[in-house]
């Protein structure tokens, strides 16, 4: 069995940095223990990985650093279940397991020359972040980039360091919102789908990419339809409980498609063909 590739064996990696993003979200920057593996590792924006806490288990997270910045891989983890709670207990220097890359990715080549509209909510910015940073690192290839991002309260906004950078850049339009007024908050208030309506971006030559809580995605998709975005030009990423990450174990399928393998990135047109309930 030595010669056979074993898809279930995690690669050992060390946590080099932990960032407290929000009161319940941490980001880990990890580096494979094997320098050769780190040097040769390739992935595409939108692909995911399985993080292992040995003795607790595995969970799936998107690689939210871009493939253009390979000093480390970054994952963001909201404390929700057993594995995520264990991840929140990690310290810098701790060893974890990583199975990556898994799944499909954003069709970033087909987006070249187009205007890009990102619509994110809460930790849903994670999969968008990898693509945003990839596009900023290849800025000339893409048209106008607009980012609409919101969370419940200002402390719940992820990647504040990126938000500051994007706000200061001339080649990105960043529109931030929080659900309700909050002391010291001088930007928009209101839910992300409502803000999308207010901003009313033109669908012309534009690809919309959205990720966030299911309820947000549901209304964002409705509002994009009202703005006359074509189903082919709307892209989202799906989540599901996953175990194997390679399309076998049977949890994350929508009909013949497995979110872990054939996703997590789907166009709305594809999802409608799959009769997915979103």
């Amino acid at each position: 069995m030595d010669q056979m590739k074993n898809p279930y064996l995690p690669e050992l990696a060390t946590v080099v940095k932990i960032i407290d993003e929000t009161p319940n979200i941490k980001s880990l920057q990890v580096v494979f223990n094997d320098p050769e593996k780190m040097k040769n590792f390739r992935f595409e924006p939108g692909q995911v990985g399985q993080l292992s806490i040995f003795g607790v288990g595995e969970s799936t997270f998107v690689i939210n650093s871009p493939p253009t910045r390979m000093d480390y891989l970054q994952f963001s983890v909201m404390k929700a279940g057993e594995v995520t709670a264990a991840i929140h207990e990690l310290h810098e220097g701790d060893v974890i397991g990583v199975r990556a890359p898994l799944g499909n990715w954003f069709p970033y080549n087909e987006m070249k020359g187009k205007k890009i509209l990102f619509i994110g909510g809460g930790i849903g910015l994670a999969p968008l972040r990898t693509l945003i940073l990839y596009m900023l690192d290849n800025r000339a290839d893409y048209g106008d980039i607009t980012i609409i991002y919101g969370s419940r309260t200002p402390p719940d906004l992820c990647y504040k360091y990126d938000l500051e950078d994007w706000a200061s850049r001339k080649d990105v339009e960043l529109i931030l919102t929080v659900d309700n007024e909050y002391p010291g908050w001088d930007k928009r208030t209101g839910f992300v789908p409502t803000v999308l309506n207010e901003v009313a971006p033109s669908p012309e030559n534009t690809i919309a990419i959205t990720c966030g809580p299911p309820i947000m995605i549901k209304f964002v998709l409705q509002n994009l339809a009202k703005l006359n975005f074509n189903d082919d030009h709307i892209i989202t990423t799906l989540e599901a409980r996953m175990k194997c990450g390679i399309g076998i174990c049977g949890r994350c399928n929508i009909g013949t498609n497995y979110i872990c393998k054939d996703g997590p990135v789907f166009s709305l047109a594809k999802l409608k063909a799959l009769r997915a309930e979103i």
């Binding site: 292992s52 607790v56 049977g250 949890r251």
Partner: peptide, 18 residues
């Protein structure tokens, strides 16, 4: 053929099971 993957461990060692 659907399966689960879980970890079992004692203090110093353990196993990952399908």
């Amino acid at each position: 053929y659907c399966f689960n993957i879980t970890d079992e461990k004692t203090l110093e060692q353990g196993e990952r099971l399908r």
